[in-house]
Design a binder for these strands. Structure first.
Lengths: 216, 216
DNA sequence: AATGTAGGAAACATTTTTAGTTTCGGAAAC
DNA sequence: GTTTCCGAAACTAAAAATGTTTCCTACATT
């Protein structure tokens, strides 16, 4: 492997690990000294990979979002039908939300607006498009109600997604993002699927890998 | 009500609300300007109640811990037996953990050592004593195994409590404090209760107010 | 109607913290 | 033996937040 590729691989490793730390501990509370220490390198070495803290957060988030696009693309490719695809999306996104607290979202919104913009763009483009295509696919496969308007349904879905990240309504009520997410998906799939789709859903939820999703 | 009492009531209201905000958003990310804004008062007014940010955090925590002692004292007074008391403790503490993320604990440990010391003292004194007395009570009531050593059992419990707040082991695994807490209590009660105690536990868990605790 | 009081908004000064950079020493590679 | 590179620690600079002060407005009191 060429030296340039080694450097890039190391960069990816550093920024990916750093973002995970930020997601766990919060961006504001975690200094660059903390990050370097937990990654087992010096600050000097860390600054060989990134220009500044903002750069680190942004690069980490970029990697994270690209990974999500890659993984969800694979879910789509592997899925047998629209319901299967939706459950696959849910499994991945929910596992990510398990480790995310609303305070970290607040942190990013407040101190890292550029990073937040990346998340917003990801939602507006990739997520929206995925749901739109999934809705159309479900209608074509006879699993979703035929009288759905995919554009409108997708907009309703995005409204709920935006609401999930509105921290002020999520605090102080013991509501966890992962549970909120599952509640929304249950609401969504019940709102779009027909009887055949619901049956398909139940079949999929019986699989071990989906048991914990509690979408029934 | 005398003016002095009004001031004190207002102080309590301010510091209690402020601590709740800190627990939700994280102490580091929430500036004094943020706190004042969310409390609907000015920074100038806020500084009439507290000397500085450290003072606000400490006073808020003090109030929180005193409230816990008062509530748990009432649980003890109202409880019919040791199992009833333990479940009552669990219900209250768990509801508090629902809104607490490990990143906030990390925040306090790192930037507010004095506040953290208060929590540590609370655990070392009040919590330890409560569990010690509960253990003795259970033995006396014939619900716990007679061959328990209350001092040792209490120390084992405190070890688990300390482990729960060790953020490094809790991150990145999708483990929530409230679930970890319930798992620990289940482990604890199974470790100390005899058959009669377990039966008592099952009876109590059938009550609506305890259904969600998932200790069976 | 005039005066006093109190709080909010905003500006200001200071301090602290963190970011980001540089230096020195040691270990490893050549 | 020399060179390179990284870690640890020290250093510098900048930014952010804390904490204080000023001015204005609204309300209460006389």
């Amino acid at each position: 492997m060429k030296e340039k590729e080694v450097d890039n691989e190391k960069l990816v490793q550093v920024v990916a690990s750093a973002l995970e730390l930020f997601m766990n501990y919060g961006v504001k509370s975690l200094t660059m000294a903390d990050v370097a220490s937990k990654l087992g390198i010096s600050k000097k070495t860390l600054y060989q990979f990134v220009k500044d803290k903002k750069d680190l957060v942004n690069k980490g988030m970029l990697f994270c979002l690209e990974e999500e696009q890659q993984v969800l693309g694979q879910v789509t490719a592997d899925s047998e039908n629209a319901i299967d695809e939706l459950i696959g999306f849910t499994r991945f996104v929910n596992s990510r939300l398990k480790d995310l607290h609303a305070s970290v979202i607040f942190d990013i919104q407040k101190y890292h607006p550029e990073c937040w913009s990346m998340i917003e763009s990801h939602k507006k483009d990739f997520v929206r498009n995925s749901i739109l295509l999934n809705t159309k696919r479900g209608i074509e496969e006879g699993l979703y109600r035929k009288n759905l308007n995919p554009e409108i349904v997708t907009s309703l879905y995005m409204l709920m997604m935006d609401g999930m990240f509105n921290s002020d309504q999520n605090f102080g009520k013991g509501i966890r993002l992962e549970d909120l997410h599952l509640e929304m998906i249950r609401y969504h799939v019940r709102g779009i699927a027909n009887d055949k789709g619901i049956l398909q859903l139940k079949n999929l939820l019986n699989k071990d890998e989906n048991n914990h999703l509690k979408l029934d």
